[in-house]
């Protein structure tokens, strides 16, 4: 196995691992919202932290999903032209449009890092009544975007392999792996 295919497999595994854990946050968000309703309605004593914590977790949940979804081809597109093209031509097309993908994600990565660094310089808190630290959630923006960029790179390498018949990647294995998940 070459360095390239090891890199590609590694990144996909990483996103899978991260995604499978982050996905469980839905249970936590559910539990906290329910808890708040219970505290407020049954005991007349709303908490200061449940809704805000749910909100923060949701932010992490959403922004960390990019790479996992990319790995599972879950970012929806318009397949009007795609569906009529042979795999190699489709790969060529995807290589070209990936420029737009990288422009967006790299810009976001750059300013996400900037934002997170700024936030971490003061260990920023929310200054709400509960006042929790929010820098970890801001940090999730560059981390989540970084994972997306890496998975985008994997996709680009796959497309290059398909377009130019290179042997570091064979699409069939990937497709089989996909089946197992969903």
């Amino acid at each position: 196995m070459g360095v390239l295919s090891a890199f590609m497999k590694g990144i996909t595994r990483l996103n899978d691992f991260v995604g499978r854990w982050i996905a469980l946050l839905v249970f936590v968000m559910f539990a906290f919202l329910l808890l708040e309703v219970g505290f407020r309605y049954l005991f007349n004593s709303p908490t200061v932290w449940t809704n805000e914590l749910t909100q923060l977790l949701f932010g992490v949940y959403a922004v960390m999903s990019g790479g996992y979804i990319m790995a599972h081809r879950g970012h929806v597109n318009v397949d009007l032209i795609h569906s009529h093209l042979a795999p190699r031509k489709r790969a060529f097309l995807d290589i070209i449009t990936s420029v737009v993908f990288f422009i967006f994600t790299l810009a976001l990565l750059w300013f996400g890092i900037d934002m997170a660094r700024d936030s971490m310089s003061s260990w920023e808190t929310s200054f709400s009544a509960w006042n929790p630290p929010i820098w970890p959630v801001k940090l999730a923006i560059p981390v989540g975007t970084g994972l997306l960029v890496l998975q985008g790179l994997v996709k680009l390498l796959e497309d290059i392999a398909i377009a130019f018949n290179l042997d570091y990647y064979r699409p069939s294995e990937q497709a089989e792996e996909e089946e197992e998940y969903l």
Binding site: S98, V100, F101, F104
Partner: peptide, 19 residues
């Protein structure tokens, strides 16, 4: 243009905005 070329909607919107 980029949507028809098959790039996912999220990245088309984001990329075109940045440009």
């Amino acid at each position: 243009f980029f949507l028809l070329l098959g790039l996912p909607l999220a990245f088309v919107l984001g990329g075109v905005s940045v440009v």
